[in-house]
Amino acid sequence: MIRHLVFFKLAEEAEGNAKAENILIVKEKLEALKAVIPVIRKIEVFSNHPLASSENYDIVLDSEFDSLEDLKTYAGHPEHLKVGEFIGKVRIGRAAIDYEF
């Protein structure tokens, strides 16, 4: 199994929305991918606690796949690319790690 963790730092305002609204939109869009990309075993999105350090990333994507090949399928899927296009417009930072467990 492969765990794919991605952290996003969002702009205070982007695409006509405040950061808090974009956090909810990103969460909804990413979690909806489970219904359209069969290789996703698990996908959850969590946001940083509002009272936590503002230096923290705003969102973490926690997802699981059976293999690296499945992760690549997910990464190249047209629906994932659409979500990535939106995230690219609202994020100012990204960090990721993929590991086997």
Rank of each mutant, 00 (worst) to 15 (best):
P50G: 05
R94I: 11
I2G: 00
K29N: 07
E12C: 00
I2H: 02
E12S: 13
F86L: 13
K34Y: 05
S53H: 04
K82A: 15
Y74M: 04
E44G: 01
A75L: 04
T73E: 11
P50W: 03
L5T: 06
D66A: 13
I23P: 04
E55P: 00
I43C: 02
R94D: 03
R91K: 15
L71Q: 15
Y74P: 04
S53R: 07
P50V: 06
S63M: 06
E55S: 13
E69Q: 08
R3V: 12
E100W: 10
M1P: 12
G93Q: 06
H49S: 11
G84K: 03
G84V: 08
V36M: 02
F65D: 06
E69W: 02
S67V: 02
L24A: 14
F101L: 14
L68S: 06
I40T: 01
A20K: 11
E64K: 05
L10Q: 07
N17C: 09
A75D: 12
A96I: 01
R41P: 04
F8N: 00
A20F: 09
H77Q: 04
P38F: 05
E55M: 03
A96W: 00
G88Y: 11
V36I: 14
I23K: 07
K34Q: 12
R94Y: 10
E44S: 10
G76V: 05
E55H: 08
K72T: 13
R94V: 12
V45C: 12
I59M: 08
I87E: 06
A20L: 11
V36S: 14
N56S: 11
L10P: 08
L33A: 07
I25N: 04
Y74G: 00
V60R: 10
I43T: 01
F65V: 03
L81F: 00
S54Q: 12
R41H: 03
I23T: 02
F8T: 00
V6L: 05
I92K: 13
E100T: 12
A18M: 04
Y99F: 15
K27Y: 03
A11M: 09
L30M: 15
E100S: 14
L10M: 06
I97D: 06
V39T: 15
D70K: 04
N48K: 12
E15F: 05
I2P: 04
F7N: 01
K89T: 02
E12M: 03
A95V: 10
A96S: 15
L71D: 08
E13T: 08
A52R: 04
A32C: 01
A20H: 10
H77N: 14
L30G: 00
E21D: 15
E44N: 11
E15A: 14
P50M: 02
L68D: 08
V90K: 00
L81R: 13
Y99P: 08
A35E: 15
V60S: 03
V83Q: 09
V60W: 01
P38A: 07
V90L: 05
K9D: 10
L71R: 13
K19A: 12
S47G: 10
K42F: 06
E15R: 12
D62H: 12
R94S: 09
E28V: 00
N48G: 08
V90C: 03
D70R: 05
D66Y: 02
S53W: 07
K27W: 01
F46Q: 08
I92S: 13
G88H: 07
S63A: 15
E55I: 06
S63C: 07
A52N: 14
